[in-house]
Nucleic acid binder design. Structure first.
Length: 1063
RNA sequence: GGGCCUUUAGCUCAGUCGGUUAGAGCAUCCCUCUGAUAAGGGGAAGGUCUCUGGUUCGAGUCCAGAAAGGCCCA
């Protein structure tokens, strides 16, 4: 007989199975077909956040990719057209630094000597260094995304679109050059944007110094000023006080036995001062404002009035002295304040972070290195009051770890502060998962928005397309290649490598060569030297990935904005912001409607995984050990995606044994028996209403599950969707199949068996579809075997099918509840057996069951056969009253009584404990109230407010839970004992069949020799033994030599058994 | 210094509206079932629900504060 379904091995190696499925997908182009299948349907737009392939992917990337995959697969099955274009981020400082490291460079000078062209060529090669590993992980994890036609941020077309965007911003007059304090990396020689700074905060130990600033009009009196950056003192131009802080003047003895007077905030006396002091008097801020002090340094000539006390709201009294040193060149707030008071800006530091030559004592020194020398110098001059150190978090360059300087320089900005309200308004239209990101992390960030520092004084990046006249300073922003060619002139354009179509490269240094005549004067237009922040590149991807507006505009409009994006939480101020900002700047609308923010992955010890710690788990290793489905399932179910979670090989292995194998074996069970029976699911139909309770129950659960999964996936709740599937698989395997097994074993055709097959078949096929977005491999395998084996015209892949639709009519909630009751009674019965120490194989006469309500009683009358069967009983009695074999104890139900009686409840509880429980129980079962006197007050407790518990037994074993009670009759008769022995013999023979390697449907002959007891059992239960073991004959005779034999001891009775396969 | 998140058994996680004895899986131990199963069932052991205070008849749950860890900002 040929098998209808491909036989399923009981032992499965998921990684190999997945390789097979991958091959199938590839050979049949299933991914693209699943996408194209929905062509013309409403698009559901997904954006890929581009990774940089100059580092190896780690487990966190596996999480991101697993999440990014599940929703598009689901939406595709829901009928949406989900285009999935891959992308690579290729520009920026991280890339340059890798190359610098490789070449052994330590700064910009080395790069310029090496040659920008050669350096950028190396960058270009470096960004795809690990692209194969990235592709392998992507592919092997089953992340369906088009990596054959990805967008790449270094492509000329991509750059052209970025230029177009910049021009839009330029035309709105939001792109400007400003002299501002920016976070600046002196090693990289470039300012960083806020979101880059955000990447690099670390604990650091800095000087903490209290410096005397001598007042001009009051010799011997000093402003006591605190700072952690001594190197900024040569740039000092003012001291700020808070208008509402109370200041004091104190007197202290000096080392030279004289006295001095210090001024500082009253609240900070203890923080700042050492030794004894006397308070001379209090001063208001107003008394201090405007008073001049002697400049600490005069390295640079100053023409404006400076070195006096000013007011500022940002002064705090949480630390320091309440007097803040102001150096506009080295602090954003200082710069603002400087503008307000028209203070000079004293720039004492060059672009490499070293003192300029005018700062004679420390010229050429890196400023941080000069700190101790400055402290020493101040000490010599008697201006240092106190110098210690201070631990705090301080920003470092996110890639090269150099401490950043806040440093005033000229650079390019996007005036995002002018669209702040729009940024906030557009954020209102975004659904964040988890929700708190919206007004928390992201919303706060937007509310505190500062202008986007766009320019980078670097080499490998999108060149800033601004040309400036070398004569008159006229500026133009170029928004496209054609536009630039026209400015230059077609003929000349082709002479530039940057513009010649044959070898076009818009990067530096080639673009720097392109000049054209100034339209305003006789000068020459030359490009500014900057490249732009690479975060702008990635934020431009919705537009630039389709080369908008130069590419297919209609396509772009269909693919904007995104329905869904997802990245880790560290992208809040990174990619999420750059997407949102650009979209708001250009189109004034949000760029994505739903954003799933992912938490970090921790190792087994809860430590953050990082390459440097060496505790990172290689995702490919996990996949090779347990498979991609197992990894994916773990990531979906272990915790909601936004929580950090721990990952280990063991935890993922658990998924295999607990979930995947349970599913697999249910599937294997179906195929095994369906093949034996030649069952064809397309050839039968039994209306669900005519199927047995068990079938209708699992179908009710199934359709309820469909609804749950569907709703939750639509609401981006991955974990909420996935976990119930695991519960269903457990129910299906451990209750439905377990309870239905015998129905499949029956020979011949009958309606009950057909019902069972149809039901299990529907469950498995539906499961394969529900699971397709989560565990795409095993889902595919099950689907293809179960469906294509009988319906060759069905879609060739589960991923090309429609997501199942729930049939509400089948969701019989009552039946679901009823079955839960049966399961509970069975559980109590097992507990009772266990308590009595009687194994399930030993039949028992009966169980007495007491339930809580007439409805439950009715349920058990209907479904009690399942209890009898499961507990190996001869009968079940539903009883109202178990007096005689039980004892009672009584308690109130707090949720009811507490609410009703409030503070009296504890006393009621005590009074109840003093009552005779049997009497109370009798009243309760009679439906009468129990009347107590508490605190001289008569209290009437209703039966439903009381809980009666039972215990003890005599010839019975009783287990009770929440009003349900099972009393097991544990008295054994010789009949029952013999039947138990028969079951034991059957089990031993079954084990022998398995050991002998017989097939499940092989027929056998049994030979036995035994003592008197077992011989009698074999005679009495011979037919039973025969039918259970598929034996055609039972011989009381020595087993032939060719049979499979065993000498056994059953309950101290010896038996010799032999089994022989019948041809 | 500020914002947000997390904290429940050795590990991974549930815990609804405040309500009886705080649950499940893994791991350990005992028992058991089994011709689908690497599974299932019953039990033992394992808990200061991070801590302190408050509200309440009653707090894992609500409120306030603190601690630890994480992320982000200054």
């Amino acid at each position: 007989m040929t098998e209808r379904f491909t036989p399923v091995p009981a032992h499965v190696h998921f990684p190999s199975l997945e390789e097979k499925i991958l091959k199938f997908w590839k050979e049949n182009d299933i991914f693209m077909r699943s996408v194209r299948n929905r062509e013309g349907a409403q698009p559901w737009v997904f954006y890929e956040g581009p990774p940089t392939a100059n580092g190896l992917p780690h487990i966190g990337h596996a999480l991101t990719r697993a999440v990014k995959d599940a929703f598009p697969r689901y939406q595709t099955m829901k009928g949406r057209f989900v285009w999935r274009k891959g992308g690579w981020d290729t520009h920026g400082l991280p890339v340059e630094l890798e190359v610098e490291k490789m070449l052994g460079f330590s700064g910009k000078q080395a790069i310029e000597e090496y040659g920008i062209a050669e350096f950028n060529q190396k960058c270009r090669e470096s960004v795809f260094k690990y692209v194969r590993e990235w592709e392998e992980l992507t592919d092997r994890l089953g992340f369906w995304i088009d990596l054959e036609n990805p967008y790449v941020t270094l492509d000329n077309e991509y750059i052209e679109s970025v230029w177009w965007i910049l021009k839009q911003i330029w035309e709105k007059d939001l792109l400007y050059q400003g002299y501002k304090v920016v976070p600046y990396c002196p090693r990289c020689g470039t300012p960083l944007s806020d979101h880059e700074v955000a990447q690099g905060y670390r604990e650091a130990e800095d000087p903490s110094i209290f410096v005397r600033f001598p007042l001009v009009d009051e010799p011997g009196t000093y402003l006591l000023v605190w700072t952690t950056t001594p190197w900024t003192l040569p740039g000092n131009v003012a001291v700020a006080v808070h208008p509402e802080v109370t200041y004091v003047m104190v007197e202290q003895r000096t080392a030279g036995n004289g006295t001095e007077r210090l001024i500082l905030a009253k609240d900070l006396l203890d923080y700042a001062l050492q030794g004894e002091y006397t308070v001379v008097r209090e001063l208001s801020a107003r008394e201090l404002v405007g008073r001049h002090y002697h400049p600490l340094y005069t390295f640079l000539p100053v023409e404006k009035d400076y070195c006096y006390v000013v007011e500022a709201d940002f002064v705090t009294t949480s630390e320091g002295t309440g007097l803040v040193h102001i150096a506009p060149a080295f602090g954003a707030e200082d710069m603002e304040l400087g503008k307000e008071y028209d203070l000079p800006i004293i720039q004492t530091v060059d672009e490499r972070g070293r003192f300029i030559s005018a700062v004679t004592p420390w010229r050429g020194m890196f400023v941080k290195d000069a700190d101790p020398l400055i402290i020493e110098e101040l000490r010599r001059r008697g201006l240092m009051y106190r110098a210690t150190t201070y631990r705090h978090t301080y920003p470092f360059c996110w890639r090269c770890s150099t401490p950043l300087l806040y440093y005033a320089k000229t650079t390019w900005f996007i005036e995002t502060t002018r669209v702040r309200d729009r940024l906030l308004a557009n954020n209102e239209l975004i659904n964040w998962y988890p929700e708190h990101i919206k007004y928390g992390r992201f919303g706060n960030w937007l509310a505190n928005n500062v202008d986007w520092a766009l320019g980078r004084d670097r080499y490998w990046g999108t060149p800033l397309p601004v040309w400036v006249c070398d004569q008159c300073g006229h500026q133009e922003c170029i928004g496209g290649i054609q536009e630039l060619r026209q400015k230059v002139g077609e003929e000349r354009a082709n002479q530039y490598k940057a513009l010649n179509p044959a070898e076009m490269d818009l990067h530096r240094p080639y673009i720097d060569e392109v000049t054209y005549p100034c339209p305003e004067c006789a000068g020459t237009m030359r490009r500014v030297p900057e490249v732009i922040d690479c975060w702008f590149d990635s934020g431009a991807m919705p537009i630039a990935q389709y080369h908008y507006p130069y590419g297919d505009q209609e396509w772009f409009r269909k693919q904007f904005p995104a329905d869904f994006i997802s990245e880790a939480v560290d992208q809040t101020r990174g990619w999420f912001y750059s997407l949102h900002a650009i979209s708001t700047l250009v189109f004034d609308q949000p760029c994505f409607r739903n954003c799933v923010v992912l938490g970090l992955i921790l190792d087994e010890d809860g430590e953050k995984m990082s390459k440097s710690k060496g505790n990172a788990i290689d995702p490919m290793e996990v996949i090779k050990t347990h498979g991609a489905d197992a990894l994916r399932w773990y990531l979906y179910t272990a915790a909601p995606p936004w929580l950090e979670r721990r990952v280990s090989l063991n935890l993922i292995g658990e998924v295999v044994s607990k979930f995947l194998l349970t599913l697999w074996n249910t599937y294997a069970f179906f195929v095994l028996y369906a093949n034996l029976d030649g069952f064809d699911p397309t050839a039968h139909d039994v209306p669900v209403s005519e199927r047995p309770d068990l079938d209708r129950w699992i179908l009710a659960e199934l359709h309820k599950l469909i609804e749950t999964v569907d709703t939750r996936m639509a609401g981006f709740d991955l974990t909420g969707a996935a976990r119930p599937i695991a519960e269903f698989v457990d129910d299906l395997s451990n209750w439905y199949v377990r309870r239905s097994r015998r129905r499949f074993w029956r020979s011949g055709e009958n309606r009950d068996k057909v019902s069972a097959y149809l039901t299990l078949y529907e469950c498995l096929v539906t499961l394969s579809q529900l699971l397709a977005p989560f565990t795409p491999f095993v889902a595919e395998e099950i689907y293809r075997n179960l469906v294509l084996s009988v319906r060759p015209d069905a879609p060739p892949s589960v991923h090309m099918t429609d997501f199942p639709a729930a049939n509400r009519a089948l969701v019989d909630e009552k039946l679901i509840e009823d079955t839960q009751l049966v399961m509970r009674i069975v559980r109590l019965g097992h507990a009772a057996r266990n308590k009595a120490g009687i194994k399930v194989r030993q039949p028992l006469a009966k169980a007495l069951v007491k339930v809580r309500t007439p409805a439950e009683r009715e349920t058990l009358q209907r479904l009690g056969n399942q209890v009898v069967d499961e507990l190996n009983l001869k009968g079940l009695e539903l009883v109202e009253d178990l007096s005689g074999i039980i004892q009672y104890s009584v308690s109130g139900i707090p949720s009811l009584l507490g609410k009703k009686y409030g503070a009296l409840y504890p006393k009621i509880r005590a009074a109840l404990a003093a009552c005779n429980p049997a009497e109370v129980a009798a009243k309760v079962s009679a439906g009468q109230p129990v009347i107590l006197t508490v605190d001289g007050q008569e209290v009437s407790l209703l039966p439903e407010e009381l809980n009666v518990q039972v215990s003890a037994a005599d010839g019975f074993e009783v287990v009770e839970e929440a009003g349900h009670m099972v009393a097991l009759d544990v008295r054994l008769t010789p009949e029952l004992i013999n039947e138990g022995l028969a079951r034991e013999i059957i089990r031993r023979i079954q084990v022998m069949r398995k050991d002998a390697g017989f097939e499940v449907d092989d027929r056998i002959e049994i030979y036995y020799q035994a003592d008197e007891t077992l011989t009698r059992v074999m005679e009495q239960f011979g037919d039973y033994v025969r039918s259970e073991t598929l034996a055609e004959a039972v011989h009381q005779a020595p087993a032939p030599a060719e049979s499979f034999r065993a000498s056994l001891d059953i309950d101290k009775h010896p038996i010799e058994l032999g089994i022989l396969r019948v041809a």
